[in-house]
Amino acid sequence: MRAPASRRPEPAENLSAAEQKAEKARGRIGVGLIVPGFVFLLLFFAAPVFVLLAMSLYAKPPGAETGVFVPAFEVSNYVVALSEYWVPLLRSFLFAGIATVLALIIGYTMAYLVAVRLRQHKLLAAILLVILIAPFFSSFVLRTQAWKQILSDEGFVVEALRFVAILPEDGRLTATSIAVVAGLTYNFLPFMTLPIYASLERLDTRLLEAAGDLFASPMTAFRKVTLPLSMPGVFAGTLLTFIPASGDYINATILGNNRDTAMIGQVIDSRFFKIVDYPMAAALSTVLMVVILILVMAYIRKFGTKELF
């Protein structure tokens, strides 16, 4: 039975009964495919985030033991969170931002080398690609600890830097902001490099020849052709680096000090486990998540591409 055209003018809706049935059956398969994962996410992502939001408003009853809280609507938790911890919060985004920019520069250079310059040298490119992925396979914590040792006051890096007077006689690298940012840069580098590599690998180098043929110098060809065409990779890479880096606390804990390198992740962790102040930890987590979401949305608005997801 065909619906009268006057009532349903849209051609997409104007389907025969058989077509509608087929469409519905396909829809059911689709729903069937996503339901299990969806339920899982509802239970273990959406609900927890909700619980976290609720918990961030809990209150501590007067005279209660440590770790005992009651449901409430204690908005002042947020006031305290922001007024007491705005410094580590800002620092987290600052460190993560610097690390993202550094990782972008380093990661782009590596990805470009492997994907474009060494395109003809398949085996060498493959081996370098392995090295790119390699850090994934050796423990994050172990690597960070290794950096601590390498940058330690007795290590050769510090001695060398002192020798060439880049670092003053009593200068050090561990327990400084520099070490923390360097660690963040290092640890999230593969997340930056791989998406850029993936988009550069698809680049048709004949386009660069065409640009050269049309009077573009190699540098201009890079700016006008290579860079724009690798933007989806840059976009994904910066997000995949910035988001985890801003919440990370391993680097700050291992490579930093407790005073002027603390990041918000450290604070959340210690609120949860040392001080057992769940509402404050939850409020800080919420703030972190909301700020990241706002930043990410703004970023997608400004530079977003549809190809990302």
Partner: peptide, 20 residues
């Protein structure tokens, strides 16, 4: 002379149009 300084232009077999 590098290609970008030559008074020569090419119509490529693959066209090589800039997709972006």
């Amino acid at each position: 002379l590098p290609s970008h300084r030559r008074p020569v232009n090419t119509v490529f077999q693959s066209y090589a149009l800039f997709p972006h």
